[in-house]
Design a protein around this nucleic acid. Structure first.
Lengths: 201, 201, 201, 201
DNA sequence: GAATAAACGAGACGGTACGTCTCGTCTTATG
DNA sequence: CATAAGACGAGACGTACCGTCTCGTTTATTC
């Protein structure tokens, strides 16, 4: 099977084509609104009003405002998580976690937290976030882990997923459930503790 | 001054006193509804209908349905987090994390996740949860840590809060942002990894 | 006949007697409120608050706020309609209608109109008003009529009730359904027209 | 310029046009409800439920249920008051008043009374009723009067408005403030008395 | 260049939950 | 025992947002 039809590109569909301008205006308006009033307070009517796009058009291309929000959020941020690859797993983890903390701390951090929050009641949002946000991040973590194991820097008797959870979990815990700081020093301290362990000797 | 402050007890307030029955019925109805239809789909009208309490009475004592939900949730669960205190910090952490994972896995787990989710848009809910749920849990973690340090089982160069984050953070990360399992084996593996660290030797 | 049984006075009923102060305070508060905010906007709670009387006490002695309003209204106004009896039916009617118009025009006029309005949906209010307000007024009209007939000033082939309607009806018509003036000149014009008739010669 | 101003007709307004079906269903439902349960007991929710129209739509086009009621009432009745014009003012008045009495007596009579009643607390309802109900009726009365004067049947020293009040006032007085009958004989008696006057000779 | 087709903006629509308000009843402690 | 204070159940109110629909218009491909 050599990759079949591919429905869109040469399709040259009849009728008026989808307006790219509308799409981008909707996403921009949603992105702004999320930051200004928050995810919950943002209304579809306001997105429509700000973007100059009809409400029906929004509902034609997105199932609800949360889908718009997720797409707007992903488009607005640099979705590709950078993989440091400095030659040291500890240094890589440090840089990766610092990046995450910085992101959480920034203007998109609260929006992200609200999206994760909304996802607890909307399985489709949850799936979308997991696929486009969490997975890429974890993938970087896994790559760091694998390289460290290959270099003999890391234990081999620990499940890779557990290891990634240990490094990335505390940051989200702090973001969503505490008001503890999310700064670079904290990132470094978490990575240091995770690497060397809590037990004495 | 013999008479201690204590403004209320002998107050013998004038007028009809608040109905304890109404309060408990509201909380019970809310608790049931959260489990049955979820936090978002639960409506104030339905709480009123099920509890036989007037809607105005609900709004008199709680500002909105989320405040009811938080109180109902706290009342419904054994809010006092048990402190194992087995004489070993690792064993204590293991038991504590197993307890948390079991709670997350159970019927209240999803409700809790939805509450944390809602808290991202409602600062007052967030404060309530932090004060009545997160803090007691962390307090147990801190006690375990302090005892372990006193016994010489744990490192002394690690910030206590970081240590608690390392043990409890991954569980919440899994609950809210992944669909990874939340079983006892995972709890044990997380504690083991946290104690011994990720770095080789 | 020296004033008969009258069940209460010597009864020396057991328990705390009804507070006359409460009764009058309720009526005073209701009377004020009706004039200030209107009959519909007046609430039982506000009557209670202003009068310093418990709401339950109000409902103990009156079935609802409209009953309070009727009683307050009757108490506040000089309920006894004066019978002029000048020796001339036309002059009597003129004076009576002038009095009615003046009353309609005054601060109690709008309250009265609102009571009549409310009575359209509350048969008990209607009955109360008819008995204590309309009937005494009509009685004066009937007396004027009878004296005029006896004096030979008035036709004998007209039903007395019709005659009274003809003199008093236009005023209420103006009060309730038009914004035509309610002054003494109008009163005189109505009586003059009613007396002499509309037909030429 | 041949094409006269006429701003609306070819307007071809943008957006979905107002649903005529919704409007008429609301009015029909309100009309039914007023007759069935009365004006006060009729609720906006019930109008919405019966008409299959959203509550928000009702509030979009009418400020409250009374505005709906007035419009429904006017639409349901033959708003154009017929002008008899028989060639005799007395006969014209008789027919007109008979018609009014019949209307008051009928199923719409009580609704009308309740509307007038409500108007005592709602100036906008009052204005609406005056403009669309009272004025047309009075206009007929004025026309009858003018024709009678032209034909020399009626006095010329009586104010036209006073004359109309004299004929139409008693009927409303009876409807709203007494329980006296509203039949054709009464109508005839009133007109007869008004025409010939109350005074002897 | 006319016909066809789809997407578009505007905005009205049915539905539903919200939080507020008033009614008339009740449950206390007080006089 | 009547009272004042005030909490209560019931239920209507008017608002807000959701997601759908119905217009007339615009922008493309197809004949």
């Amino acid at each position: 099977m050599t990759k079949t039809v591919d429905p869109d590109p040469p399709a040259a569909r009849v009728g008026r084509p989808r307006s790219e301008r509308s799409r981008s205006e909707v996403l921009r308006a949603a992105s702004d609104l999320m930051r200004e009033v928050g995810l919950r307070a943002m209304t579809t009517d306001e997105i429509a009003a700000r973007s100059g796009v009809g409400k029906a058009t929004i509902y034609k291309w997105w199932p609800n405002k949360y889908a718009v929000a997720v797409e707007a959020f992903l488009a607005a941020m640099d979705t590709a998580a950078a993989d440091p690859d400095t030659g040291s797993a500890e240094r890589d983890f440090r840089l990766a976690l610092r990046g995450i903390m910085q992101f959480y701390r920034g203007p998109n951090g609260r929006v992200f937290a609200q999206l994760i929050g909304e996802a607890q009641s909307h399985p489709d949002i949850a799936a979308e976030l997991r696929h486009h946000l969490m997975q890429p991040r974890r993938e970087v973590g896994r790559a760091i882990w694998d390289r460290g194991v290959a270099r003999g820097e890391l234990r081999t008797d620990i499940d890779r997923e557990i290891a990634v959870d240990l490094v990335f979990g505390p940051a989200m815990y702090r973001l969503l459930a505490t008001d503890a700081p999310l700064d670079a020093e904290t990132a470094d301290a978490i990575v240091a503790a995770a690497m060397r362990g809590l037990a004495a000797v």
